[in-house]
Amino acid sequence: MSISSRFAVGIHILTLIDFNKEGTSSSEFLASSVNTNPAVIRKLMGMLKKAGLIEVHPGIAGAKLAKDLSQITLFDVYKAVNVVQEKELFSVHDNPNPKCPVGRNIQNTIEPLFEAAQLAMEKVLGSLTLEDVVKDIASKENMNC
């Protein structure tokens, strides 16, 4: 199991909006870069708008970032697209055998470990910004020119 691709696509959308700030970032344009259906992009853009990360206006094609690149963390994107709920990144199997010492204790033993791992991951995402992503992509593109 992996984290929903909505997270990666959300980062992709925001990054492309910044790269294309002189042009129109319509859902069709964004979908062509992600290689998906524009309806998927519109749904995610709605989530990003609700989180205050982008501005879109009805009847006007395109979107723009609502904040500076350095103010949008990857954790903001992660939360905006509803990747997982708090303390629910890892699932624990239901109904282990209570007659077995491992089955009786496994959930209480591993749940705190899973919570700590999720918090650590979220802390890392909170320390990275969209600016970091944009700069990395820009440096890779400059190397290829």
Rank of each mutant, 00 (worst) to 15 (best):
G10Q: 06
L30N: 06
G23T: 13
G10V: 09
D136N: 11
N20L: 15
K140C: 07
G52K: 04
I11R: 00
V83H: 11
S70R: 15
L74K: 05
A39C: 08
K79S: 07
K43A: 13
A63F: 01
S2C: 03
I137E: 07
T15Q: 06
N37W: 08
D76P: 05
S25F: 04
E115L: 02
S33E: 14
G62M: 06
E22Y: 05
F90V: 14
D68G: 01
S25Q: 06
K87I: 04
V102F: 12
G23L: 08
G126T: 08
V77E: 06
I60H: 05
P112D: 04
T129K: 02
L119H: 07
N97A: 09
K21M: 04
S139D: 09
A51S: 15
E141T: 08
E115S: 05
A8I: 08
A31H: 01
R6A: 13
N35E: 15
F114T: 07
M121P: 00
L89P: 07
A120R: 07
K64N: 02
T36A: 12
H57K: 15
V124A: 10
K64T: 11
K64G: 01
S70L: 01
Y78R: 01
S139H: 01
G52N: 10
E115R: 06
A51V: 09
G23Q: 13
A8K: 04
L74F: 08
K99R: 13
N142D: 14
D68R: 04
V92Y: 15
T15M: 09
I54A: 05
A66D: 04
Q107E: 15
N82Q: 14
E131C: 05
A63P: 13
N108T: 09
T129M: 06
P96V: 07
Q107L: 10
G62H: 02
S70A: 10
G62F: 00
R42H: 03
S25I: 05
A117G: 04
A8T: 08
A66V: 09
E88W: 01
Q107H: 11
T24F: 01
Q85N: 13
S25K: 04
E122C: 07
D136H: 14
R42I: 02
V81S: 08
A117Y: 11
K87Y: 10
G46V: 03
I41W: 03
G103F: 12
D76V: 11
L119A: 15
V9A: 09
K79Q: 11
M47R: 11
E111T: 12
L16G: 03
L89S: 10
S33H: 15
I13D: 03
C145Q: 15
I110P: 02
Y78W: 15
V92C: 13
E122S: 05
K140L: 12
K43V: 10
G10S: 05
V56Q: 10
K21P: 00
V83D: 07
N105E: 11
H12L: 14
L48M: 11
H57A: 14
L16T: 07
S4A: 12
A8W: 00
A51M: 11
S139V: 00
L113P: 00
L65C: 04
E28Y: 12
S32I: 07
S27V: 06
E55K: 12
D76W: 13
K50I: 06
S139M: 01
E131A: 14
L69M: 03
K49M: 09
I41Q: 06
G46F: 01
G126F: 04
A51D: 12
Q118T: 05
E88D: 13
V9Q: 12
Q118V: 01
V124H: 08
Q118G: 01
L44F: 08
K21C: 05
I106L: 13
V83R: 02
